[in-house]
Amino acid sequence: MSAANARRVEPSVEVPISVTVNGETVETTVAARQLLADFLREELRLTGTHVGCEQGICGACTINLDGEPVRSCIMLAAQVDGSSIITVEGLSAQGLGPLQQAFKDNHGLQCGFCTPGFLMTLSTVDPDEYPGTAGIREAISGNLCRCTGYGGIIRAVRTAWDRPDHG
């Protein structure tokens, strides 16, 4: 439990938090009503986390929160005290990781607005839980893309997850 934690019972409009973001500890105070997506984008300037709907539907804002894919637009920054977050900026230490490279090689993105959300979902889930191409479709069903029709994305995931082109 972080030091900030103890003070939290008293209701307040300014909330101290301690959170690990892409491996770095951030200790700061956030407005009680600030959305996590806005905290990442506007305070930490991690603008790779995109905001497409602010109602949990499109998936553009998906991040990795303690190992689970989570919508950062329907979470308050105050709620992440003590947690660990990975955003698209933290996905690969250098250059493109294998999943990102597969997106590039398979034309898995067009405008790229939805892409960080897809990457964060895919990097968080266990491929074995989503077998076959049907599994890939299911795994990405909580992320909407308006450009690609998903063809390139599915090919990219097949490549990254090393799955044959059928089934």
Binding site: R8, V9, A32, R33, L35, A78
Partner: peptide
Amino acid sequence: MKPPPLSYSRPHSLDE
């Protein structure tokens, strides 16, 4: 689409 002004509290026990 931003939440209205509010305050926040995170109790650690049911009683709190």
